[in-house]
Design a protein around this nucleic acid. Structure first.
Length: 295
DNA sequence: ACCCAGGCGACGA
DNA sequence: TCGTCGCATGGG
């Protein structure tokens, strides 16, 4: 990685990184693509516009200090992914996933934000998750720039009472979000302590929150606590496990299972011919309810 | 119109 | 402990 300062822009030369895949692979819901191909978003209450041209990233309107202390870390630029990938790619499925979109990195997102976003994600689709998260920020966050809002703290979400969350149109998830805010505020769930807990204890603690089950806990740990051994299993990963790993996911990869999971998830969800169409239907878990003729 | 979404809690067997 | 069902809302 090579870093150049150019006025208020920072130019970074880096290989094996894909901005679009990283921001659009279902790990973060706060980045929007602009007409010119750049992306704008907020992390840790800082606003950024960023674009990629070949192996150059351009961080707009930041400072070298902010780049060093925030964005370099957020985008995980100092981790050697080529090393991790050459290890993981001894598996042929992961190898296919990496040749399809191997430029993905795991973002080091804020713990509270990731927890909330993945509470909202349950039984929901990505465009709608983005909408709810966006309304959450607009209504409860602080305005950082005109029309751009921070992610609200637990207090901001708790203060108006649960009825105030109606504006989110989050359905049954509103109560879950409110319970998360309450338990973080009263110390029942201490996010700072979770950062240093053994992962089993971290899981158990997160699951004290109503609406946080195994899957949401794994997502929070992977994306909000950078626990790359966390392995979220949703319907897509279930399909992958059935189709590619009938004998189980290889133990040797467990220490970086979350990273492997991210490549596989993005691959089978967005690559047309990753797995057969019939197989997708076959594994869909919802079955037709027996139609009982009324009257 | 219809199916389903990066699931979970409640409930019954 | 395990399988099933309802849940709110709206994107495609």
């Amino acid at each position: 990685m090579k870093v150049n300062t150019n006025g208020r822009d920072i130019e970074v030369t880096i290989d094996g990184f894909c901005l679009e895949d990283t921001l659009d692979c279902g790990q973060s819901f706060r980045w929007e693509k602009n007409k010119d191909g750049s992306f704008s978003g907020v992390a840790y209450s800082r606003v950024l516009t960023i674009s990629q041209h070949g192996n150059k990233l351009i961080f707009k309107n930041t400072s070298s200090d902010e780049f060093e202390t925030l964005w370099k870390v957020y985008f995980d630029l100092e981790t050697d992914y080529s090393h991790i990938k050459s290890f993981l790619c001894s598996d042929k499925t992961i190898k296919s996933a990496c040749s399809y979109a191997g430029g993905i990195r795991i973002l080091r997102q804020d713990s509270w934000e990731a927890l909330c976003c993945f509470i909202i994600s349950q039984n929901n689709n990505i465009p709608r998750i983005k909408g709810i998260v966006s309304r959450l920020c607009e209504n409860f966050g602080k305005e950082l720039e005109s029309g751009i809002f921070s992610f609200p703290d637990p207090q901001d979400i708790f203060d108006g009472g649960i009825e105030a969350l109606d504006v989110l149109r989050a359905g049954f998830r509103a109560g879950y979000l409110y319970d998360a805010a309450r338990k973080v505020l009263n110390g029942e769930v201490n996010l700072e302590e979770i950062k240093t807990m053994p992962i089993e204890d971290a899981r158990t603690t997160l699951m004290k929150i109503k609406g946080v089950g195994p899957k949401v806990a794994e997502c929070a740990l992977l994306y909000g606590f950078y626990r790359v051994e966390a392995f979220p299993v949703d319907v897509w990963i279930k399909r992958a496990l059935h189709y590619f790993y009938a004998d189980g996911f290889p133990k040797e990869y467990e220490s970086v299972g979350g990273i492997a999971q991210q490549y596989i998830f993005h691959y089978i969800r967005t690559c047309e011919d990753a797995i057969p169409d019939e197989y997708k239907k076959q594994v869909r878990q919802k079955k037709a309810p027996p139609k009982v003729p009324q009257r």
